[in-house]
Design a protein around this nucleic acid. Structure first.
Length: 197
DNA sequence: ATGACGATTTACT
DNA sequence: GTAAATCGTCATA
């Protein structure tokens, strides 16, 4: 499935994380970004780059691609291309649903609306790290998506992607989707608009 | 072996 | 608004 189709489709679905001790945490996905693979200058797989780090991007649809960045943060993608086609959707924010207590512990007592309001924040809150990189989200119970019916397009807002200014023309494309005015998104639409004025 | 760099977050002025 | 934190990964040598 093309990432630009999966990204809006994921909004409203439930991302579920089960810890080894059976603690269950989950959140409704409210923000995603599509990464379009070899042609996308903002993607880790631009130009067909294939390394140990991004190997999971080349796996079958439903593979989790988790990477470590800035020396301290993890981010999580859902691979959606057929095997060998490195395209994926970055999950950027959740509205916490289950396991808020456990999330608060991991997030050092941040406000509830900030628990999962960013790609690295949600990974911290849900204890998603490199041990989940390459895992199959369709078969495992450690990390998976509970699908819900697609939301109508009018409930969604599209903006350029965050943090990819280095990508030239690709930085300007509207490949970020969010639930309009949801308080749990990483950066609000209005703030984003201001950045492009 | 070395150097540069992040698909970010937080704290601070 | 700006800056610091912090280190795995990759390209270069």
């Amino acid at each position: 499935m093309p990432p630009q189709r999966l990204a809006p489709r994921l909004i409203g679905c439930l991302l579920v994380r089960t810890l080894p001790d059976s603690t269950r945490m989950s959140g409704r996905i409210v923000e995603t970004e599509a990464y379009l693979g070899v042609k996308d200058a903002a993607a880790h797989t631009f130009g067909g780059r294939r390394t140990l780090r991004n190997e999971a991007m080349y796996g079958p649809p439903g593979t989790a691609y988790v990477y470590f960045t800035y020396g301290m943060h993890h981010c999580m993608n859902i691979v959606c291309g057929k095997e060998g086609e490195p395209v994926a959707v970055l999950v950027r924010a959740l509205a916490p649903v289950e396991g808020l207590e456990a999330m608060r512990v991991r997030r050092g007592g941040a406000a509830d609306r900030l628990l999962c309001a960013g790609p690295a924040r949600l990974c911290k809150a849900m204890d998603i790290d490199l041990t989940l990189n390459g895992s199959d989200m369709c078969s495992g119970d450690a990390l998976f998506v509970e699908v819900s019916p697609p939301l109508p397009a009018r409930k969604l807002t599209r903006t350029p992607r965050i943090g990819v200014d280095y990508a030239g023309d690709w930085a300007k494309k509207n490949l970020r989707w969010m639930l309009t005015d949801d308080p749990n998104v990483s950066i609000s639409a209005s703030k984003n608009r201001r950045a492009f004025r």
